[in-house]
Design a protein around this nucleic acid. Sequence first.
DNA 1: ATCGTGATACAC
DNA 2: TGTATCACGATT
Length: 210
Amino acid sequence: MTINKKTIDGGWLARPCPEVASELIGCTLVRRLADGQIIRGAIVETEAYQEGDPACHGSRRRTPSNEAMFGPPGTIYVYLIYGMYNCLNISSDRADFASGVLIRALQLEKIPPGLEEKAKQGDRLAAGPGKLCLALQIDRSLNGQQLTVNETLWLEHRTPEFQQSLDNGENTIIQTTRIGISLGKDLPWRWYLANCPAVSRKGDKGDKRT
DNA sequence: ATCGTGATACAC
DNA sequence: TGTATCACGATT
């Protein structure tokens, strides 16, 4: 088989989720549909959740619905929120410890199949975790599966060009508090790319550069 | 600010 | 058995 050094593996994800979440900014999420069509987008917004954090779905009890958060790094956790939207997380750290990264927004490379009518939303077709799953046709049927290159879903490392844009200050990653939660509001575990139109929401004044 | 929508966890 | 809650998004 061909080794693809661009692909992110479980080893890279086997670290505390805040570290993984911040470094996933600029990486590419790739989805392959059943008919072989490929949808690609750069990750521009993430949040970290882990055991001990009251906002984490795995912070109370291990149940069938949050089981994937306890899976080995690279396990896909998809849950239904408010009865109509799916949200995608990638489990991190280690098995039997609830930990993962919520992928909140993508800068898509092109209009995904089925969304041609919504093309006027342009850069904002995957601006938010629910919209992202709609755009990539991700639902709970993926829950509990592993990321697998060239199959349904996988991740690729930052390109050298993107890394360079961070190093020379052309691009900036902002760290701030998470969105849409009632507990654990104070933890600064959200990251997004500054000045990116595909980010779900702009931050507050107090947001920090990293 | 409000509302749609449904699974789930936990109370009783 | 009921019911409060929810890592959202569109609309006003």
